[in-house]
Nucleic acid binder design. Sequence first.
DNA 1: TCTTCTTA
Length: 834
Amino acid sequence: MNELPIQRVLPELLDRLRRGGSAVLVAEPGAGKTTQVPLAFIHEEWLSGRKIVMLEPRRLAARSAAEYMSRMLGEQPGGTVGYRVRMDSRTSRATKIEVVTEGILTRMLQSDPGLEDVGMIIFDEFHERNLQGDLGLALALEAKAALREDLRILVMSATLEAEPVAALLGNAPVVNCPGRQFPVETVYRPPAAGTPLEKHMAAVIREASASHPGDVLAFLPGRGEIRRVQAELESGGIPADCVVRPLYGQLPQKEQEAAVLPDPQGRRKWILATSIAETSLTIDGVRIVVDCGYMRTQLFSARTGMPYLATDRVSRASADQRRGRAGRTAPGIAYRLWSHEVQNHLRSRNTPEMLQTDLAPLALELAAWGVQDPRDMLWLDPPPENAYERGKELLQRLGAARPDGSVTEKGRKMAELGLHPRLSAMMLQAEEMGQSGLAAVLAAVLQERDIFRAGPGAGPDSDIRSRVQAVNRWEQQGVAGSHIDEAALKRIVQESRYMQKRLDTNSAGAWQIEKSGLLLSFAYPDRIGQSRGGGKFLLTSGRGVELPGEQPLSREAYVTVAAVDDRKGAEGKILLAAPVSLEDLRRHHGDDITEETTVEWDPSLGGVKSRHQLRLGAIVLRESPAAEPPAEAVAQALLDGIRAEGLGILAWTKQAVQLRQRLQLMHEADPDWPDMGDEALLEHLEEWLLPYLYGIKSRSGLQKLQLVPILEQMVGWDKKSRLDQEAPTHITVPSGSKIAVDYSNPKQPVLAVKLQEMFGLHETPKICFGKIPLTIHLLSPAQRPVQITSDLASFWKHGYFEVKKDLKGRYPKHYWPDDPLEAIPTRRTRPHPQ
DNA sequence: TCTTCTTA
């Protein structure tokens, strides 16, 4: 057998760690680090009989690493080399190397912070930057600093950028190792403008398969895209020696195997996969990779406390990892469905899980570890404050932590259960109710992949009780039923039995399946939903969610929503839920139920509604009219109503409108006068309107308010008398008529008057401290405007004679003097001689 | 119409 590249760097690595401390090993794929490195250390003297613990991100990887190393020693796992993952371990007194999943290290450290029987911890695949890996390293560094200076830490990573980790380990030495892989040619093939990515993907798969040997592995974001590409390929016809195989996590195990194993009929596989094939599954025989360049990840909204899915461009590291899948067994080719330009803008790494996930589990571990402030610890990326605070709040709500962040006795038990704190809280509560059996199944269903596959013609089913019933049928009769993934069902059964066993319980009562929603409410007190009709629910957190499609659950009054996909700007989508009775909510969440009297403007009523409410968070469990709401609250609610509906809700009479316009004119000339614009009036409602609102409850009451005296009161007597002078309601014209001034444009007040009434007036009248000339609309005898002017003197001199000629033709009986400034003004046809 | 993992 060829020497593996890792052999050449092992002496250096051994030497570095003999001197104590830590090291970073950067090894490219194919170097052989996972199996060679731990074995190289087992005879080191400094171990002095202690174990080596190696961390793997996945159970499968932990088991196969242990199996491989055991085989090299001619042993079975559980001898010199063992493993430990959830629900399964092979170790013995002889075990010197224990391969564990990342979460196991946390449990080991929490029960024995000095890790007395461990001499060395190896973090494998650390570049994946899973939350559990980051947490494990942070805890291990504290253990080393405080209790175990001799503890060796080796971080192994497949990609460069080792410097930050080396720095975190106290300037640890970095050892580099080349890999051993077959060359893979890279081709950039962006879709032509207007071509959908899925259509393009199908065309490239076809072309690549025709011109290169081997199986095709195509990367897509999710199930929907996979189905559409499959349909596209099938509609164009598939060569007889090829077969399309979808591959994603939700796919039943049998179908996943069909994608991973060689085709029994020897056909070439066209595998359409999600990122599951990037690291979790390896497929032999792939020589062609087609990468669409997108990946779907779950993000966590600290605002709503709910997760959501997002589809984004892959990172360069992911794209390289995907490409490498074509060179495992022979030289290959990788098609990237994006341009060089896009390639240059890809982010270099995936976002560490720490920065985008729910941090309640982390907060619980740190509380149990005794940490008050995570900033006191060493992190590559410290937990973001928002999400961490949100996590701490949830722990408090679940009774796991005190307000100062310290862990409670219950919290310690929850951490030991090794579940999400929500599910642990439910388990403990269920134990007291004698329902730990049912709770264990609910927790297992929520932890594992869904066992349901919608059958043909079956509607959506978000009721978690159907899964519980399937588990029940399996336990009672050993039948899985159609549309059920049997392998997933078995995992759930195993998981639920395991969890129930871990509660030191003797209270396994018969399942009361109708209590599912209640049990879930102990895990998700912020996601108890009240029906709003049409399958929509309002959650106690204040968020709106809805069921996908019509289903019986839509008719329930209250549900607990366990699994949900939050969507920005829309109702979140309920994935799994169960009904809960109002009676149970009142009995078990009584401490969270608040009583309050609300006084609100009700737009449909057009008035103030006051109610006495029993609330559970944002949802109202019961309400009744409140007998005597406080007057101040009613007045405030009226103001809310006016703000919501606008000033138009008040009765603006002609006089009131004109008064407001006149005041606005004054304001524009002198800012010392109040602003009468809508915005300003609404902003100052409390000052000018509130005192008049007592006793009023509705729109009709508001409309009885006399606005003229209210506005006059607002400006005060002094300003009111100046207003009458400087912005008069009427102007007396030469004929003796009192004509109303039109202030509807406060910058240009208008005086509309018959031309004949103005004879003898030399100059345009001015108002507002003589600053604003009136705009005069001179009217014909029939009240039609014939001229608009703000310069009367000029009109008499120039414009009048043209106008006169015209008017004389149309109104011959009227008086049209040649000298308008000397003529007698009149409102009649001709002036009456005295 | 839901990406992938994980807790002695």
